[in-house]
């Protein structure tokens, strides 16, 4: 069976500490100003009737990929497990993918290519978890193969209420926010 890499982000556990953000930066040696993941705090209501949702967001590694479709050079592509990657040697930094992505998940690296979350595929290939998952002190992040119904991520998505970002964009995101 084909693998389908996915991530579940437990918004009930997450405290928004940014450990995922900093570990991503050091694992992937990102320059100042470059982020592959980030924290969103969404507040609703009026004092004192308030709700707060905290999300660790990143590229959704969508099953339908407007970014790949928009790429004129083939740099943006779908790699192992449906992971959406950018081949920096083919990327001209034209930003068409950035316009196509509804999530603002991409940014231009100072070296001229577009950069984004890779699900730490280099680690996954060595049977390690992505850096953000490994360090998360609240164990909010679960990465794995959604196509394997026994995997922790598939179980979470099957059994917990969840949402995806901007489902109306028709991108079929593979990052699921457990609520």
């Amino acid at each position: 069976m084909t693998r389908r890499y996915a991530m579940a982000v437990d918004t009930l556990r997450c405290v928004g500490c940014n450990a995922c953000v900093i570990s991503c930066k050091t694992e992937n040696d990102l320059p100042s100003g470059g982020f592959r993941d980030w924290i969103v705090q969404e507040v609703h209501g009026q004092f004192p009737s308030l709700t707060l949702q905290i999300r660790s967001e990143r590229c959704n590694h969508c099953a339908e990929t407007p970014c790949v479709a928009a790429c004129p050079t083939g740099a943006s592509h779908v790699a192992a497990g449906g992971t959406v990657l950018v081949n920096r040697r083919k990327c001209t930094g034209c930003k068409a993918c950035m316009v196509a992505c509804p999530y603002g998940a991409r940014w231009v690296h100072p070296d001229g290519y577009v950069d984004k979350c890779t699900f730490c595929l280099h680690r996954v290939e060595r049977a390690q978890q992505p850096a953000c998952v490994e360090t998360c002190p609240t164990r909010s992040l679960t990465f794995g193969d959604l196509a394997d119904p026994a995997s922790p991520v598939a179980r979470l998505v099957a059994h917990r209420p969840h949402l995806v970002l901007q489902p109306e964009a028709g991108t079929r995101p593979q990052v699921f926010f457990l609520t």
């Binding site: 570990s23 050091t26 360090t135």
Partner: peptide, 25 residues
């Protein structure tokens, strides 16, 4: 030092670190 990760053998970190711990570099 390229990066700092949590030590799984350590009872206080149990392999996980907060952002400051990761940001020691």
């Amino acid at each position: 030092v390229t990066k700092i990760t949590g030590n799984p053998a350590h009872p206080l970190s149990r392999g996980m670190l907060c952002p400051r711990g990761v940001g020691g570099t």
